[in-house]
Design a protein around this nucleic acid. Structure first.
Ligand SMILES: [Mn+2]
Ligand SMILES: [Mn+2]
Ligand SMILES: [Mn+2]
Ligand SMILES: [Mn+2]
Lengths: 152, 152
DNA sequence: GCAAAAAGTTAGCTTAGGCTAACAATCAAG
DNA sequence: CTTGATTGTTAGCCTAAGCTAACTTTTTGC
């Protein structure tokens, strides 16, 4: 080490640390991306069950704005991942795990939406942005959003 | 129509409108998702050119936390889409369009980051969340974020 | 100026998430 | 109870974005 008694950190180490922090950010975002679709589906399925008594693929397709085969394939992945159960030609049920995820997602969605509205955003834009942002807020950010919305 | 003089809106129409609004939200989010990677790349490329004089694939790979072949393939798409130019075994350049996108992305990234920090978030989490959120904020939300950060 | 290291490319594989076309099952009217 | 409409499934296609293995090119250090 060339520093006097090693008291300072070399500039390239500072740089390396900054790079490393950002790599973690990118990796984290890619990770989050992998669950976005699942999160939106289970949240919607929970809502359909609550509102309509059941979650039919056709209603999922209508609300997600995708075609029926896309829904079928996605439901296959959700079942594989233990979030739903289903029988052929029947509507869909959430597993315990699916219900837990749905609840968490609805909670996050609501906080983000409430926060955006309390910032002064119009409802349509707020809904639109919340639908994307909800998948990328950490627990900490969510807590700050909730605080802010409560205080205003 | 069964309403007295058609003065009210039928509840199923209200419902239909709400469903339609959410479909638009989902479609919008899917749309945004399609440009996330491109946005992160051009932003990073601009930064590397600024800081190092050039953007080498190896540095892009290190900072994005992906392998060199992944970068190569992504750069192929960016070139196809007119955002960069490149020559074999050489580093990468932004087109006019690429520079414009990079500038816009850096701008958005900075506002979102500044906003999260001014909310009281720690820098690491702020960087992490900003990296994901930046792709899902509308112009309106961005303006509100900027206002908030300025005022605090 | 050459050899080894570093960087870049290519081929080929994987998964997710979209689509259409074709077919099968269920449901609702009559 | 039959039939037509609705709903669901399957097969097969596509693109994006990740990976490893193998190869080529460029850069660097002696
Ligand atoms: Mn969402
Ligand atoms: Mn949601
Ligand atoms: Mn980003
Ligand atoms: Mn960014």
């Amino acid at each position: 080490m060339t520093n006097d008694q090693n008291l300072e950190t070399a500039p390239q180490e500072v740089e390396a640390r900054a790079v490393e922090a950002r790599v973690e950010a990118f990796i984290g975002v890619r990770e989050a991306r992998r669950s976005e679709v699942a999160e939106d589906y289970v949240e919607l399925i929970a809502e359909l069950i609550h509102d309509n008594g059941e979650a039919r693929p056709v209603d999922i397709a209508t609300r997600m704005g995708v075609t029926a085969p896309t829904v079928a394939k996605t439901l296959g992945r959700l079942a594989r991942d233990g979030l739903i159960t289903r029988a052929k030609y029947r509507s869909v049920f959430l597993t315990e795990e699916g219900r837990a995820l749905a609840k968490e997602c609805r909670h996050r969605h609501e906080i983000v939406l409430r926060f955006l509205l309390s910032l002064g955003l119009d409802p349509e834009t707020a809904e639109r942005d919340a639908e994307g942002i909800e998948h990328h807020v950490s627990e900490r950010t969510l807590a700050l959003f909730a605080d802010f919305a409560d205080r205003s």
